[in-house]
Amino acid sequence: MAWRIIPLELGRLAVLPKILVWDKNSNHEGETGRIQVPLIGWLLLNEQTGEKILVDSGGGEDEEFGTKYHNPLTCNPENHLEAALRKHATTVNEIKTVILTHLHWDHAYGVLKLPQAKVIVQKAELQYAVAPDHEFIRTYELDLPDRIPYFLRYFKQIQTVSGDVELTAGIRLLFLPGHSAGSQGVLIDTKEGSYIIPGDLVNIKRNWEESLPPGIYNDLEACYASMQKLREIADENKARVLFDHDFAAFEQFAQVR
């Protein structure tokens, strides 16, 4: 079963480089310069059946809110989920399945625009999101007064899986914990070969090329183990690994149409 992968730019964050790559040999002390990184949603189109699946949904459209409580957020009208899907002849109502690589706000907020969709999350991620380590409370928005955390607002849409699971023909979910307790990747078969969306285990090209974990993690040892697992699966399936917060991800598809 062949799928087509279309990366959607759903906004941009201004972040410190140290949150993208953890490198014990780098000294980030006093680092203040931020860089722009994309928030990417991945539209999967089944070329036989016409089915449409979304992997990750962006961090929402409220720039003021995102900037105040997270990182400086830019989300122009063309980056709104409805508009980004519309460029590819897709409406939000056509998305019946959303796969979330993890429940961090910048990947999972946009689900609020998809009330028709079932939301596929690793069970370990959902369990961790409701009671995370203290340093990640804000990431899941558990500490904001008078505001129900975004993922609890679509709680009844969530369907959990555990471990590596074949979701449907041509799409396999890969349990890749470390960045968060229940992070997962998605292995997808296309006409051009297999691709893996790895979530924030591989933020940028450097993570993959130098086998460096992300700068944000709940378990560094698990990050290294997941990176090794990802390499083995990529080699076994001759799969290309995509970059989750890197403009290079769009270049990876410049010739694949």
Rank of each mutant, 00 (worst) to 15 (best):
I204N: 02
I120V: 13
G199S: 13
G30W: 12
E82G: 09
D200H: 14
Y140G: 03
D164L: 09
L20C: 03
G33I: 06
L144H: 03
K191R: 13
G182R: 13
L114I: 05
P213A: 13
I233Y: 00
D235N: 10
T168G: 02
I148C: 11
A84I: 15
V98C: 05
A248E: 12
Q122D: 15
E166I: 03
A84S: 15
V202Y: 06
K205A: 14
E236T: 11
I19S: 01
D143W: 00
L16S: 04
L114Y: 02
A239W: 10
L230M: 08
D219H: 10
F247S: 06
K191F: 09
F250C: 13
T74N: 14
P115A: 00
K156H: 14
D200N: 12
F247N: 04
N25V: 00
V55G: 01
E51Y: 01
L13G: 00
M1T: 04
T160Q: 11
A14D: 13
I196S: 02
A239C: 09
Y154K: 03
L100M: 10
V130N: 05
V55L: 12
Q252M: 14
L187W: 09
Y140I: 06
I95F: 03
L174V: 03
V119W: 06
V186A: 07
L112Y: 01
G11F: 12
G33R: 12
E31A: 05
A129K: 07
V111Y: 00
P132R: 04
V241Y: 03
N46V: 01
